[in-house]
Simulated assay, not measured.
Amino acid sequence: MNFDEIQSIWNSQATTKETVERESILLAVVEKEQLLRRITTITDGIMIATLLFVAAMFFRDPVLQGHDLILILPGTVCLVAAGWLLKWRMDRQRRHLGFEQSLLGLIDKSIDGLDDRIAHMRNFVWWFAVPNALGLVIALFIIDPARRHLLYLVFGPAFVICMGLAIWQINREIRSRLLPEKQRFQELRTQFTKEQ
């Protein structure tokens, strides 16, 4: 066997190894992107359903019993937040259709999805805390004085504790999982951009 034949065999094996490596990376990126899309879809659905449920609770007394009409305000804020989430979701889906169907396109789509998820989680406080805090403040003025202690001792502290824990968990998730994952995708993108 001469040098040229050995060189061509070596080159074909190197190409095959590179192709197999590229295909395994592509498969891993596709799986990550699909997992992220599923998690985002479930999270969006739960958030929208929760906001609609809370809005229904705020609308219940004003609509069915005709009193405490001020509760229409936090109910409307919940509906607006649910609509905003739905619009955010549709914008993200439209944006993701614009990415090319290649490895780099999938990596870019995954990075965009992670950026969107991070922004989504950081805006959680505004979408959930504001409508509920508004409802609690209004409840202070319309609740029967004999039951006001429940608001001070149960609902208020429970709301503060739940929101504090949610914010802590969100920041921990972003810091420990989403930002490192985004960095890995960015490094992968840099690596493939240099190879091309």
Rank of each mutant, 00 (worst) to 15 (best):
Q7G: 00
I9W: 04
W10E: 03
N11T: 10
E23P: 00
I25N: 04
L27H: 02
E31N: 09
K32E: 08
L35K: 12
L36Y: 00
R37N: 03
R38A: 11
T43W: 14
T43Q: 15
G45L: 14
G45D: 07
A56W: 02
M57Q: 03
F58P: 01
F59S: 01
R60K: 15
R60M: 06
P62F: 00
L64Q: 00
Q65P: 01
Q65Y: 02
H67R: 05
D68M: 05
D68Y: 07
I72E: 10
V77S: 04
C78N: 13
V80K: 08
A81V: 09
A82N: 14
M90V: 13
R92T: 11
R95L: 11
R95Y: 03
H96F: 06
Q101A: 07
S102R: 08
L103A: 00
D108C: 05
L114A: 09
R117Q: 08
H120V: 11
F124M: 07
W127E: 00
F128K: 05
F128Q: 08
P131S: 02
P131W: 02
N132Q: 12
A133G: 08
L134N: 09
G135Q: 09
L140G: 11
L140R: 09
I142S: 06
P145H: 02
P145C: 14
A146I: 04
R148E: 07
L151F: 08
L151H: 14
Y152W: 15
Y152V: 12
V154P: 04
P157D: 13
A158N: 08
A158Q: 00
F159E: 06
C162K: 09
L165R: 04
Q169L: 10
N171L: 12
L178H: 05
K182Q: 07
Q183H: 13
Q183N: 04
R184W: 08
R184T: 13
Q186M: 14
Q186H: 05
E187A: 15
E187T: 11
Q191M: 09
